[in-house]
Design a protein around this nucleic acid. Sequence first.
DNA 1: GCGCACGCGGTAAACGTTTACAGATTTCTT
DNA 2: AAGAAATCTGTAAACGTTTACCGCGTGCGC
Lengths: 352, 352
Amino acid sequence: MGDGPTINTIAERAGVSIASVSRVLNGLPTRQETVRKVMAAADELGYVRNAVARSLKSRRTNQVAFAMADVGNPAYLAMLRQIQPVLKAAGYRLVLHSTDAVVADEIDVLHSLGERYVDGLIMSPLRVTGAHLEMLAAARAPVVIIGSVPEGTRVDNVRADSRTGVRLAVDHLYSLGRRRIALINGPLDTVPGAARGAAYREALEDLGLPCDESLVRIGDFYRPEGGRAVADLLARVPDVDALMCANDLIALGALDVLRAAGRRVPDDVAVVGMDDTDLAAASWPSLSSVSLGSAERGTVAAELLLERLKGGEHEPRRVTVPPHLVVRASTAGAGHDGSQGAGGAGKKGAGS
Amino acid sequence: MGDGPTINTIAERAGVSIASVSRVLNGLPTRQETVRKVMAAADELGYVRNAVARSLKSRRTNQVAFAMADVGNPAYLAMLRQIQPVLKAAGYRLVLHSTDAVVADEIDVLHSLGERYVDGLIMSPLRVTGAHLEMLAAARAPVVIIGSVPEGTRVDNVRADSRTGVRLAVDHLYSLGRRRIALINGPLDTVPGAARGAAYREALEDLGLPCDESLVRIGDFYRPEGGRAVADLLARVPDVDALMCANDLIALGALDVLRAAGRRVPDDVAVVGMDDTDLAAASWPSLSSVSLGSAERGTVAAELLLERLKGGEHEPRRVTVPPHLVVRASTAGAGHDGSQGAGGAGKKGAGS
DNA sequence: GCGCACGCGGTAAACGTTTACAGATTTCTT
DNA sequence: AAGAAATCTGTAAACGTTTACCGCGTGCGC
């Protein structure tokens, strides 16, 4: 594992200068004879170009970072699955950051852009603070944000429309005759938490339903806590007949609790999740869910970034990906053979 | 976004040499007065150390790569979820490679180690070819392989024991009274495919069951193909009463088809998956699955690599993670309220 | 046959750090 | 207070590339 050959080693061996070696290696016009000698020497030595030195000189690393709250979250994974191949095809490596939604960690990632170890960044923050905006304004490399940022923030931005998403779900539940529709939400100080809470109220109002505050439960975005919130809800509001859950994990937690409580889904209580992750299609019963287009947001974000890396000096772009409702057994009523649950989840996945 | 400050800028501003700046920045012993001046200048300029230049000189990048077949596969994700925090805690960034199980891509990753853009690599190849072994022997940075490599390969290695895993599952099915146990396997030219096929035969033999070749079906490791293999099987061997599936995705495909065919699970046909992914706990009915310890293999791999990066020049290590069977509704018989499906999957996951 | 243009290829200077070495300063000893 | 010892800091050389610039040699035109 001794020190590998450099262009100096090759130059020596081929009897040419390092400049010529570099030229040959980069395919710049060179006499055939020289090309031959250099190639031969490089082959014999098993030369591999040092990416670090190259980056230092060229000021490009061919790396892009993706920062998300949590590697374990299926919604981010859906993005990752799209981002990875797009970047790879364009010749970039992907550096992963999992920030656990800790603001300090996210700021740190933004700060570390100054280290120039990546050419660009895709970030999906759960909360957007003033510190975020400051760092974004001063960022030393192109950044694309997946999620909502305040109007006027000068940064490329791909957003979901969870407001319309919630609307779709609530309307659907209403059309099934449900009138006691609860919301199981995540923290209100997160962007999605706030948006979904507001959208829920708005949707109820437009439908002429009273907004009973006891129907709203706040927990976090994880499965166990989702379950707890639902248990609490059932105790206080026994006549609830539908649950709008702020994400799929919460909805799965809800299904666990409903089952344990002997409530039939969807006959007694209909349940809708959000994000339409793989888990929704696989769950028991399969879960209706609002797709916020995680996958598409990933693709778009990667494309926006690539464009920016290609040198585009255009105005910041903002793309909104429209949501759609995927109806499955948890709202579709009984009598279904479940076959609608089979389609969505197969995607990809090789053996272990 | 103009060129940021370098230590030269700071040196000038602080009226000291670049050597002093570097020393202050690295916390080497320096006079208080100098420290103060340098820090002040660095702060004012918003200096951030250039990671590339630093890497060139120090010959360390503080990056580690993880190469897996497919970002979308839950088994690899379970590894990723463990690897990421371990490396992060040790100060390393994670570079992700998705090779789609294409041998050429994997070789390429190994080759690119020579570019020295990472300090080490964790790789989980589906197949291990001669080319792999050659590249491994010549690797210019420490590598840890997750998966099986031939005896005597000089590389740190974390393996699952899918042979014992299959044994656990088959014994379990046998103890439930099943005697027509089919195997739905992936390609035999993959390491796991081969191992699981062999283990299945061995297990049947030890139980004194005849090995009926029509009970063995080969597809790929994906959900739709798993379904197709099962459809085929049901047509040829209608009296099958148990399915041993080579991974969870195949098993989910099997559940889809069984449901469509009107076979009750587990009453008519019991199903066991493998890998114990999140999907198993969430599926309908929840899926018994053999855990091959993906998460633990990830942790161990990361730790082995870190040890090696710390400079350990010890003999290559081999760690085998023991499997265990997680029994859920798909083999547990009817009458279950499903609550056993609730525990395992909640793990982590923040809102979208 | 001389000079000019042109194509190649070599020299050297970057890129932004770290660090060995030696020179400069301070601090201590006596 | 002078010399030795200890501390600090500056100069310069790396790390492995890319690339601007210039000189050399060939081939061509006149």
